[in-house]
Structure formats: structure tokens, C-alpha cells
Design a protein around this nucleic acid. Structure first.
Length: 714
DNA sequence: AGCCCTCGAGTTCC
DNA sequence: CTCGAGGGCT
């Protein structure tokens, strides 16, 4: 939400003039991106809202209308964007590391996960990490059928026509390639080509690109493939997606096969033994960096053996078997203008640094998070200080320290952290031992309500397309929207909405259709969307899988609330709280859900308002059951528990394998456990399983069972 | 009790 | 993306 904007009615003339100027610049920038099909940064609805606000202001202050007003320029039929493309295999991101230390940690972690001795040598591939954009190209029977950008990793944009114009991407492949084959790599632009392009653009008054990466992105995402064809784009393959047959059993072998099919592969690609050798390549690459002729931002190392890659698997959205070793971040100095406080959906007060605009590594930075109260104190940055910044990792700017004159710094007032919510004025408190200060306003805090609704409709939650912050704000102000269920009743305001500035037949229909499309939504998404403390995407999915249906989930919540044993005689309040929390975790019995999460769930459900909210929501929405993919394995659909010390694989790996075979992995043994795998020195869990008559197998038996259930990959 | 790994939450840039 | 904190192992 742009909290800096005032309502049209409350604005004076000077404010309106300033706002109009800002809107003109904003709309021009966004429409340039939109029409030139570079990445649009806001949704259509949000863009519409900007245009709408502009019109409203011009109506209120007709004498401020400028000849070059956006209202005189916008209005052509919007160019349809690219169609969405769902990746057959998700396109993942990589874990980043910035030091030799982190790289060696990465290697050590792999050894631990695989239970390898410290002396075992792991072979890696190493290659330059090109600063471009990822593309996944699909071939069927040797012919290119599609090409798509990464997008969010699951769904990208179909840019097939444009990719076909890139000279070094083969349109068809030689005989004998796998029938289905997806090659993934990086689209980029050489520095010399980038400079020539910008010079040509300047000459014809076209768009000037900030850096080669943006130029490549802008060129690939052209509506008119003819424009893409005129741009000097290059491509290097670095991986693959779906493959109907595997030509090799190592990363290096695969890349060589891909190269033999006619794809360019980076000449920096090498196979080396051990992380120390990867680090040597990194140093070598850093020295060569300036002479490569294109931008790179580091080096990528991958475990060479595909068998090991498969065993290592994934964490959230990144593989455990790969790492991006990044060059040191670029730094810059600017002035800290002010520190603003934002209120998140959980009430967390987060300080944001407002900075004098400064270029850091090709991007203009104006904001940076300061995380929390302690961080400000630790760095002792004060409004007015000159500060040193860097763009950490890939993008996020970070304030390193204040710089300049110490006396001047000392003369500036330290930032006073507010102890009341800047949005609703409620007391903001800090839990013992916690870093965040939270607004206690809860339901009455408008900022929290707004952020919760935004979370509910966000892509990873219920995913209502095209419902942006500005629309939510508008509907709240109109009194149409208070809780998530209200979203599904917005259609009752259809006529009123149609009468409003900027809402036309089509935009209203699109919004209502998008909402209707989510009347049936996965239990996991719905659960995540509720925004229960400590229940994020992964935990929500684990809980949904364990309870299968909304009925099962609600029953679990009821059980939690009903579990209300009295304190034992002489038990302190603290001990009692700890014990009952532990018991709640046992009632849930889902690996990864401990006392804290269990208590958060209970507290949520103990609140009558939340029960009413969920009940209301369920009158509008049908949660879809979350059923594990049933693969043909002996453990599919079974609830398993691991105990004792496993020798062939670590516990984490065992859990990951079991889940891949369709099993649920619980934390402890109960009557609902189907199978216990007992490693060496199994203790109480084994005894309990035997007492309950739960099947117990040894590690060897489990390995055999798992190998049987294994399906060929790909 | 201490340690390591993951996850959750909030944020930035385009 | 980074930081803090929860969960689960040793």
C-alpha cells in the first residue's frame, strides 16, 4: 500500500500537483514496460488504479491537467501478454554463498546428508554463472515445441516465437535424441552488443537499458518476435528439465551430450574433484571476468553424480546438490533520509530506510530494510547519516554502516523506535527474547487487516489473479471487504463497482471470474492463506497432507482446543505450559510441527472470532482434499516413523525418500503408525511400537523395500 | 544443553 | 534475499 498517498478529497492543490507529477512519471514508466513487453512490475489492476487516480485528480483540479497528461496517452487496447506455461519440472533457484567458508560448509553438509566419511572426495562441475535470464526449451521428437521463461519456477511465460529467433538455439535436433527433452540455460547479451544496442536506441529515441541483463530480458519479452530477432541474444545451456531418456549418469556427461546435440555450453564448464578445486576455479574465473565479454555474477558448482543428486534432493525451492558462488557485492554510499515503520500482517513493525537514490551495481536503490530495532541499534545508523550500501545476494539492498564525520554523526539524534503502532495507535510490544516488536491491535489494526487480506489472495496462498493492493484498499474503504469470505461476495457489489471510476465491464468481469475460479481451492493453500502464526507454506502443506481433508483438519483443531488437562499438583505455570504444548505437538504428530506451532494452531482456534471467520469462509469456498501422489510403492499412503541411528543414509534423507515414495513421515509412534524403521540403538519408540503392535522393520529391510518402490527417474 | 538445518516472515528491485 | 526462531538430533 502506498501509505504516502492521501485521498483525492483531502489533498490541497500543491499536494495534488506533486501527486499528478508522480503519477505521470509512474504511469509512463509502467506503460513503457507494458507496451514494450519488458517485465511489467505491477498487475493490470494496479496499473488501472494508477490511471484511475490520475483521472480523479484531474477531475478535481482541472487547471492542473498537463498537455502531456497520461490520460491523453493511455487508453489504447492493452496488448495481451504472453500465455502462461507450466513447467513439467519446476525451475529451481540456487543456494548462494559468498565465501570459501560457505562453500566448504556446503560440501560438508553434502557429506553429512549422505553419511559420507570426511575423507570422501565429491566430484563437482563448475561453470560461470551468467547474469541473464533462464529459459526452458522443450523438444518433442527432436523438434522445438516451446520455450518458456522461469517465472515463479512453476509457471513461466511462453516465449516460443521469440526463442525461435535466437540464432544459437537449434530449432531441431539430430537423430537419436530423447523423444521428450527440455534444455535449460541462460539467455544473455554480450557487453559489446549491449553497448551497440543502447547507442542505436539512443539514436532513434528508443528505450535505454540499464544493463545487459535488462536488455536481454526486454528483448526476449517482445510481443513482436521480429524485434527479438533484431536483438543479438545468446544462449548457454546449463541444465535440463523433463527427459524421456538419460544419455549420461553425470552432470558433466549430460552437458556434453546436450552440447553434442548442438547447444552452446559455456567454455568455463569443467569437472573437478572436491570443493577446494571448485574454489580454485572460482579464483581463476574472477581473474578472467573482465575478459569474458559478458556479465557473470559468480560460479555455479553442482554435484556431478546424478545418483547423488537424486539422493540429495531439494530443500524448499533449491536443490541440495548445487550452489552459486557469488562475487563480492558492489557497494555505494548515499544519505539515509529517514526511517519509516511498516506494519506487517502479523503486526510486526519493520523499519525501512528511505535513501537518497543511488546506483548500486546498475540498479537505483531508494529503500532498504533495517530488519528490526536491534539492527538499528547495532549499526547505530541515524537519519541524516551517510551510509554504505551493498546489494547482498542478488537483489536486496543492505545497509552496512554509517560513514563520514564522527562528530556530525554524534550530533544527529538516534532513531527512537516507536512503542505504538503507527497505523492504529495500539501498544506495540516485544516478547521476551524476541527481536520483533508487534502491534497488539490485532483485528482493529487496519494495516494488519489489509496485509492479511493481501496474504490471503497472494500467489502462494489462494492466488486470486489481478486483485492487487489498491483494489483491496478500495474495497475495504467502501466497506465491502473485511474478512476473506467477503471476497467471494464482491459480486453482490457488481453494479456499484461498475459505476466507479476506472472499473469497466471487462475489468469487473475479469476480477469476479478470478475470484470464482478459487471457490474450490487446495486445503494447503487455504490453510496457508489463513495466516496462522508459524504456519507457512511448507507447514501448511504438511498439515494438509496429514489431515487430508478440511474435515480432518478441523477435527484436529477441535481436538487441540478440547485438550485441556489440569496442572499437576505442585507444577509451576511455566512447566505446565511447556508440558501441555508438548502434548499438543504429540496430538498433531506431524514431523516438523513442534510445541510452538501446535500452540499457535490451538490459540488460533480457541479465538471465537477465528472460528467464525473460518466457518463463514467455508460457506463460500470448498477446500480440495490434499492427497499424496500415490506411486506404486509398498509404503504409499502409509504413515512411517524413523528411529535410531541409520547407517546407509541420514535421517533427513530417509524422510525425503519415504515422502517421495508416497509415505507420510510422522515424528513419533502412535496407534496410527503403519511402519517403524528401527536403526541401531532404537530405544523407546521401538518399545512403544512393539507394545502397540506396529510393524517394525530394520534399516536393511527398509533399504530393500525402498529400492523396490523406486521408479526410474525422468 | 548445544548445534545444525529448515522454515517463516518481511522486504527490494524490476 | 536475510534474519531469527522452531524442531529435532547428538
Amino acid at each position: 500500500m502506498d501509505r504516502g498517498d492521501l485521498g483525492v478529497k483531502t489533498m490541497n492543490r500543491a499536494q495534488a500537483a506533486a501527486r499528478l507529477k508522480w503519477l505521470a512519471a509512474e504511469i509512463a514508466a509502467h506503460s513503457a514496460r507494458y507496451y514494450q513487453a519488458d517485465a511489467p512490475s505491477i498487475s493490470d489492476a494496479e496499473f488501472d488504479a494508477l490511471v484511475r487516480e490520475n483521472s480523479a485528480l484531474e477531475a478535481a483540479f482541472p487547471d492542473l491537467v498537463q498537455p502531456d497528461s497520461p490520460s491523453s496517452q493511455v487508453g489504447a487496447a492493452p496488448v495481451p501478454g504472453f500465455a502462461k506455461w507450466r513447467h513439467a519440472r519446476p525451475m529451481l533457484s540456487l543456494d548462494n554463498g559468498f565465501s570459501a567458508h560457505e562453500a566448504l560448509e556446503f560440501e560438508a553438509r553434502i557429506r553429512r546428508f549422505l553419511s559420507l566419511p570426511a575423507t570422501a572426495t565429491i566430484t563437482f562441475t563448475a561453470e560461470a554463472k551468467i547474469d541473464g535470464l533462464s529459459l526452458s526449451i522443450r523438444y518433442e521428437a527432436g523438434r522445438m515445441v516451446s520455450a518458456a521463461t522461469r517465472g515463479d519456477g512453476t509457471e513461466g511465460e511462453n516465449v516460443t516465437a521469440n526463442a525461435r529467433t535466437i540464432a544459437c538455439i537449434p530449432p531441431h535436433l539430430p537423430e537419436g535424441v530423447p523423444d521428450i527433452l527440455e534444455v535449460r540455460g541462460e539467455v544473455f547479451m554480450d557487453l559489446a552488443d549491449f553497448q551497440a544496442l543502447n547507442a542505436a536506441q539512443a539514436a532513434c529515441g528508443g528505450k535505454i537499458f540499464a544493463n545487459p541483463r535488462n536488455a536481454a530480458a526486454g528483448s526476449l519479452r517482445q510481443i513482436d518476435a521480429g524485434v527479438t530477432a533484431s536483438r543479438p541474444l545468446r544462449f548457454y545451456a546449463h541444465g535440463w528439465g523433463e527427459m524421456s531418456a538419460m544419455p549420461a549418469d553425470t552432470q558433466f556427461g549430460m552437458m556434453k551430450a546436450i552440447e553434442s546435440w548442438g547447444f552452446p555450453v559455456s567454455d568455463t564448464l569443467a569437472r573437478v574433484d572436491g570443493m577446494a578445486a571448485v574454489l580454485a576455479r572460482f579464483e581463476h574465473l574472477a581473474a578472467r571476468r573482465a575478459t569474458l565479454g559478458y556479465d557473470i555474477d559468480g560460479l555455479v558448482s553442482k554435484v556431478d553424480s546424478l545418483a547423488l543428486q537424486e539422493r540429495l534432493g531439494f530443500v524448499a525451492r533449491a536443490p541440495r546438490w548445487a550452489m552459486a558462488h557469488k562475487f563480492a557485492a558492489e557497494r555505494a554510499t548515499t544519505e539515509l533520509l529517514a526511517i519509516d515503520i511498516q506494519v506487517g500482517r502479523t503486526g510486526a513493525l519493520t523499519p525501512v530506510a528511505r535513501l537518497a537514490p543511488v546506483n548500486v551495481g546498475g540498479v537505483i536503490v531508494t529503500n532498504a530494510t533495517l530488519h528490526n530495532e536491534d539492527e538499528i541499534a547495532r549499526k547505530d545508523v541515524r537519519p541524516g547519516d551517510p551510509v554504505e550500501l551493498q546489494r547482498a545476494g542478488d537483489v536486496i539492498p543492505q545497509i552496512l554502516r554509517w560513514v563520514g564525520d564522527a562528530d556530525a554523526h554524534a550530533a544527529r539524534a538516534p532513531f527512537l523506535y516507536p512503542d505504538h503502532c503507527p497505523d492504529c495507535g495500539s501498544l506495540a510490544t516485544r516478547e521476551e527474547g524476541e527481536a520483533v516488536r508487534r502491534c497488539t491491535g490485532g483485528l482493529i489494526c487496519p494495516a494488519q487487516r489489509y496485509e492479511r487480506l493481501r496474504h490471503f489472495v497472494s500467489r502462494r496462498a489462494v492466488d486470486i489473479d489481478g486483485l492487487g493492493g489498491r483494489s483491496i484498499e478500495e474495497f475495504i474503504a467502501l466497506g465491502w471487504l473485511d474478512s476473506p469470505a467477503d471476497l467471494f461476495r464482491l459480486h453482490r457489489h457488481r453494479d456499484a463497482l461498475l459505476g466507479r471510476e476506472g472499473w469497466k465491464q471487462r475489468s469487473v468481469a475479469n476480477l469476479l471470474d478470478a475470484i470464482d475460479a478459487r471457490r474450490t481451492v487446495g486445503l494447503d493453500r487455504l490453510l496457508f492463506g489463513l495466516g496462522i502464526r508459524h504456519v507457512g507454506e511448507v507447514t501448511a502443506r504438511d498439515l494438509a497432507r496429514a489431515t487430508v481433508s478440511s474435515r480432518g483438519f478441523l477435527a484436529l483443531l477441535d481436538t487441540l482446543v478440547a485438550h485441556d488437562p489440569p496442572p499437576a499438583p505442585g507444577e509451576t505455570a511455566e512447566k505446565y505450559a511447556k508440558r501441555i504444548a508438548l502434548e499438543r505437538a504429540q496430538l498433531i504428530n506431524v514431523a516438523g510441527v513442534g510445541p510452538e506451532v501446535a500452540t499457535a494452531l490451538r490459540d488460533f482456534w480457541a479465538e471465537p472470532h477465528n472460528r467464525a471467520l473460518v466457518k463463514d469462509l467455508l460457506t463460500e469456498v470448498t477446500p480440495a482434499d490434499v492427497i499424496l501422489e500415490t506411486r506404486t510403492s509398498a509404503v504409499a499412503g502409509k504413515t512411517m516413523v524413523f528411529t535410531g541411528t541409520l547407517s546407509a543414509m541420514s535421517r533427513d534423507e530417509a524422510k525425503a525418500r519415504a515422502e517421495a515414495l508416497g509415505a507420510r513421515v510422522a515424528g513419533s509412534v502412535s496407534a496410527r503408525t503403519d511402519l517403524l524403521v528401527a536403526g541401531a540403538d532404537a530405544g523407546s519408540k521401538r518399545a512403544k511400537a512393539e507394545a502397540l503392535g506396529v510393524a517394525v522393520i530394520s534399516e536393511e529391510e527398509w533399504l530393500a523395500m525402498q529400492a523396490e518402490g523406486d521408479l526410474p527417474s525422468g
